[in-house]
Computed example of a mutant assay.
Amino acid sequence: MNMKMENFAHSKPYSELLVVSIEQAVAAPLCSCHFAEGGARVIKIERPEGDFARKYDKAVKGESSYFVWANHGKESLCLDIKNRDDAALLHSLLAKADIFIQNLAPGASARAGFDSDDLRRRHSRLITCDISGYGDTGTYRDMKAYDFLVQCESGLVAVNGAPGAPGRIGVSVCDIGASMNAIIGIQQALYLRSRTGAGSGVKVSLFDTAADWMTVPLMHTVYGGKAPEPVGLHHPSIAPYGGFATADGHVLAISIQNEREWVRLCAEVIGDAGLASDPRFSDASLRVKNRSDLDALIARFFEANTRGDLAEKLRNAGVAYGGVNSVETFSRHPQLRRRGVTLESGETVQLAGAPIQYSFEDPQASFGRIPKIGEHTEAIRREFVRVEANV
């Protein structure tokens, strides 16, 4: 590695950024955590009692799985932003900040004197990001917007689950998606600032995020006259597609999306080349129309073979497949990367590796430590009181 690359390797992409975030739960903390992973200094503003996500569970050696996942590498500053002195300190922080993120209830930050538009007028380079449940206008503006409720309101649960039994997606997908959209918006604002010198405002809501994902079902409903229904592991317009039990008690999923794969499945996996031209199954629409017969046929074949044998045949034939794994099985998956993180207690645990891998970063490097409630409060007060005095 030459000297230039060595220097670059020690400078993460956000290493010169200061991010200040009044955050709680998942969406905003996960967003700011991305910037911490990228090298930014992230100051997490908490109530004196701490972010309530700290107490969601005790699954990680007595600490919250949600909090550990979304808060490593940050500094924790406890403030009461309604208190005049604490508000003054926050204003001092924001005068030096590059990014301000908040996911308080709609209007709460403005009532406390931290309206995003006002802040950008005061600090021209500041980028603000407001994350909400339903946006800052409309009749749903003040509705509670927990992830599950947004999944329900947006129709996500209506297209998930099994027939007759709509189901919640088993992770906080609206929170996660809103966080990713916030990151995209902030990155775009940073790029714009690099050209214009001016900060801008980003607004993201959980509902808008879910609505975007629901575009295809929405178009089917509005223009096609019929919404997709929950089909479990199946697909409403593709067959064969789904999970099938094996002789040794596992479930393998297959997804046949073109005629070439269909022919190979019949000839090289099932061992019946003539099945590909069966009048019931000879094209994609016929396979969907006769799904029950087709699924029964494939189910019988899978039930007579072990997972290992089927996986070998499917892989050799170039047929798309995957295991329908439990979380326990997933935890031992050969493709699962791990990355260490140090808990408040000082113990170390392994999280899933970051989804983004940089060419200049050691993939074995640990994430930053989980901060204790208010751990950095006094140090930050001293630092920014000095900064204010020197201005």
Rank of each mutant, 00 (worst) to 15 (best):
K12F: 15
L294G: 14
F360A: 10
L190Y: 12
S64F: 05
G185Y: 03
G243H: 02
D80C: 07
R193Y: 13
G346M: 00
D130A: 13
L343T: 09
A273G: 00
V19L: 14
K289M: 13
N2K: 03
F67V: 09
G318P: 00
A95K: 14
R386V: 11
Q187S: 07
P106A: 00
N181C: 05
L156K: 08
E23S: 07
D98Y: 05
Y66V: 07
T128A: 12
R120K: 07
C31T: 15
E344P: 02
S255Q: 14
P217Q: 04
A88N: 15
L206R: 01
A162P: 01
L156P: 04
R193E: 04
G38E: 10
T209E: 03
F330P: 03
R287A: 01
E23W: 07
G167C: 13
K12A: 15
A189K: 02
I81N: 00
G232S: 09
A267E: 09
G346T: 02
N83S: 06
M214S: 04
R121G: 08
L90K: 06
G346D: 01
V231Q: 03
K4N: 14
D293G: 02
A178V: 11
G201R: 11
F100T: 05
R264L: 12
V150E: 02
G161Q: 04
C129R: 06
F207D: 02
S109W: 03
S205M: 00
R195P: 01
L90R: 07
F384G: 12
E344Q: 11
A311H: 08
L126V: 04
G271M: 08
G374H: 07
E347N: 07
V387N: 04
I99D: 04
N7T: 08
I43R: 05
P29H: 12
S11T: 15
R260Q: 06
T246C: 12
S132A: 01
A198R: 14
D85R: 14
L275M: 13
D147G: 08
I186M: 10
D309I: 13
V341T: 04
T196N: 07
Y56C: 11
G243W: 13
K61D: 08
V159I: 15
A108R: 00
V391L: 13
G308A: 13
K226S: 01
I270T: 06
M5P: 00
S237Q: 09
R287F: 06
G368T: 05
S237R: 09
A247P: 10
G185R: 02
L218H: 11
A284N: 02
H91Q: 08
T215M: 11
V391H: 12
D208R: 02
P29A: 05
G50N: 02
G340Y: 05
A178S: 12
G197N: 08
D115C: 12
N83Q: 12
D85N: 14
R121P: 02
V68R: 03
K289W: 11
A110S: 09
